[in-house]
Design a protein around this nucleic acid. Structure first.
Lengths: 186, 186
DNA sequence: TCTCTATTTGAGCATACACTCTAATTTGAG
DNA sequence: CTCAAATTAGAGTGTATGCTCAAATAGAGA
């Protein structure tokens, strides 16, 4: 994997994998389908990746990384910032958002590696949301902030889940509605 | 399928299918696994079901029917009633709840039959929630009630989705939190 | 140009899948 | 008790999967 050709092929394979997981799910993403979509033969795939799982894990990492943008800004963002960033992720990176949501379910059962990553990511997200909430409501107890943050994160996932079924669905309206309800309920 | 033995075998197969979909997902549920779990050989399975898909669809129907209990009471329930009923479904019928949530994602891509059922069910649920909300808040516009109802239904799904990954997760606390936020935000 | 690798090719392997078939066994009404 | 129908047994079918491998081709430094 030192020549340019190999790197380009690698990108095409990852892109094909991403599109396929988004549209067909983890189990529906076969080597044959990946290779056809990428214009490559199985031998080339296995020259660049050790296994199908390795390619899938790369895409999983892409998806998880894409959910939480601007990590340097962490510690300064408001709850509204975080929700708006999530809306942007879902609307502007549709494929990765679909991958991301499928992980929480399809991936959890079979693949411990994916399950571990997803769980750790979820917990990190809740912490970030809770910190923002605590900053905006200093009187709120940490436990209360964490509980509220977790509810909000999961509710946002539920909305995204619906978009997987109905691609025309407007995530932004419902996500903002959740946010204002959460802030109103304090 | 007229003898008692056949009916009992059918039940065992459906139960095995239910448990397997809950723990392994739709694609992980193979004929071999179903037969082993049910203590049956493939010949018996195909004596009672035309296909694997038929058995799965039976379980899908079970799950969808179990989400909305007490259909006669429809038109009188409060939003709190509906949320409490959902909490009961998730906590008391764990396997079916896991099946139910997996449908929204795993099933949607590959199987148009399951996708259609799931979408219709979702819409029906939103209508029921919206009607309850309108009854409690007569001044609210129908469009507003429907939007709020849909947000709540999806958020509840998000919470249940998390329970699929973490079985010890306390759904009730977060579901009630969503409800009170939704009512507070009016 | 020559040479050594990286890359691609594409046929082929073992396995697992959904499903079928025939023969044996069990059931229960008459 | 009889016997046809219902049910089971279990080997076997074709196909798709993830993956391998030897041979052919393309790329880059000498």
């Amino acid at each position: 994997m030192r020549y340019k050709a190999g790197l380009e092929t690698r990108d095409r394979i990852l892109q094909a994998t991403r599109v396929l997981i988004a549209s067909e799910g983890l189990d529906g993403t076969t080597i044959k389908a990946i290779c056809e979509q990428a214009g490559v033969l199985p031998g080339s795939f296995y020259n660049l990746f050790d296994s199908k799982e390795q390619a899938i894990l790369s895409v999983v990492r892409q998806a998880i990384d894409a959910v939480d943008p601007d990590p340097e800004h962490q510690g300064k963002d408001t709850l509204a910032d975080l929700v708006e960033a999530y809306i942007r992720f879902v609307t502007e990176q549709g494929d990765l958002a679909r991958v991301y949501i499928r992980l929480a379910i399809s991936g959890s059962a079979n693949n411990p590696e994916i399950k571990g990553r997803t769980m750790r990511h979820h917990e990190g997200r809740v912490v970030r949301f809770a910190a923002a909430l605590s900053r905006e409501h200093p009187m709120m107890s940490d436990a209360e902030a964490e509980r509220r943050a977790e509810t909000l994160v999961m509710a946002l996932n539920g909305i995204t889940m619906h978009k997987v079924m109905d691609p025309n669905f407007d995530v932004a309206v419902h996500a903002r509605s959740l946010l204002s309800d959460a802030l109103a309920g304090v």
